[in-house]
Amino acid sequence: MKNSGGPLEGAVVAVAGAAGPAGRAALLRLADAGATVVAADADAERLASAVDAARYAHGGATVIGDTVDLLDPAATRAWADKTESEFGRIDGVVHLVGGWRGSSSFADTELGDWDVLERLLIRTVQNTSLAFHDALLRSDLGRYVLISAAGASKPTAGNAAYSAAKAAAEAWTLALADSFRKAGGEDGPRTAAAILVVKALVHDAMRAERPNAKFAGFTDVTELAEAITGVWDRPAQEVNGQRLWLTPHP
């Protein structure tokens, strides 16, 4: 059954990087909360599977998939414009584009890993935030939600490139939050950019592959999806520019 009467009933939410396990969970939860969900990913086949799963789970839910290269600023802006034109509003962007590369030690870091992670973890945040900025300001409940990692605040030797990329993505999102704050004037922001921080994510397929692993401190993708929708349950002034920790603060 689809929920009704909540803050996402009738809202339009774009999900960037929707084809992975976290994206699938987010699509399901957002659809359950009553949102129209517009999902984007570069992998058309996996995206179609994720969209179909959300539609099947919630009969009557509007879940749409768009194959978009989020590394292309023009393509990302075209996706934002198309979404707002088709549905008349955009109330949220959930950024789930991910990727990880690491090394056994700091000295073994490959700078090629930075080149990959800069594109996946930073450039996609830049493109989506710039493309959707004005539309989110036009909403009375706009939210931009970045998923980040605890390593951005406490980097480890073998995760230099990953942690630095995550930290840069957080800084960019906090600058977006400041733009929303300034736009709100004396009344405070009506639109918010928030960061959900996890240690790492886990899902059922990972548990099946490693049945003896503890995954201590990991956040299940279904818990993450619940936290994502929860950002709309709180006032914009309360969550704008905040790191919301789903794992103990390091």
Rank of each mutant, 00 (worst) to 15 (best):
A74V: 14
T67F: 11
D91P: 07
E84C: 06
G65S: 11
F87C: 07
D91Q: 15
L71R: 02
T76G: 02
L71G: 00
D72S: 15
F87M: 08
A80S: 05
P73L: 01
A61C: 12
V93G: 03
V63R: 10
R77Y: 00
H58W: 15
K82E: 13
G65Q: 12
D69C: 05
T62S: 14
A78I: 00
V93H: 10
W79G: 03
A78W: 01
D66L: 10
R89N: 06
T62K: 12
T83P: 09
S85E: 15
S85Q: 15
D72I: 00
D66C: 13
V68K: 04
K82L: 11
H95D: 03
I90L: 15
K82F: 08
I90H: 06
G60S: 05
A61F: 13
T76N: 01
H95Y: 01
R89Q: 15
I64D: 13
P73M: 01
R77W: 00
R89K: 14
T62C: 02
I90F: 07
A61Y: 05
H58V: 10
V63T: 12
L70Y: 05
L70A: 04
F87L: 10
A80T: 01
E86A: 15
L71F: 00
G60E: 12
G60K: 10
T62L: 15
R89D: 08
A75K: 00
L71A: 05
V94R: 07
G60Q: 08
D72P: 04
V94G: 08
G59I: 04
D72G: 00
G65R: 10
D91I: 13
H58T: 14
G59C: 02
T76S: 04
E84Y: 01
G60R: 06
R89L: 07
K82V: 12
G65K: 03
T62Q: 09
H95G: 02
D81I: 01
A74P: 03
G59D: 04
V93C: 06
E84L: 09
V63F: 14
T62E: 12
D72V: 03
R77S: 11
E84N: 12
L70D: 02
T83V: 13
G92L: 11
D81L: 05
A75N: 10
A80R: 01
R89Y: 10
T67I: 05
G88R: 11
D66W: 12
R77V: 01
I64T: 14
H95S: 00
T67E: 15
D69E: 05
D69I: 09
A78M: 06
R89C: 07
V94H: 08
W79R: 13
H58I: 14
V68M: 12
D81V: 03
F87E: 07
L70S: 04
A75T: 02
I64G: 11
L70W: 01
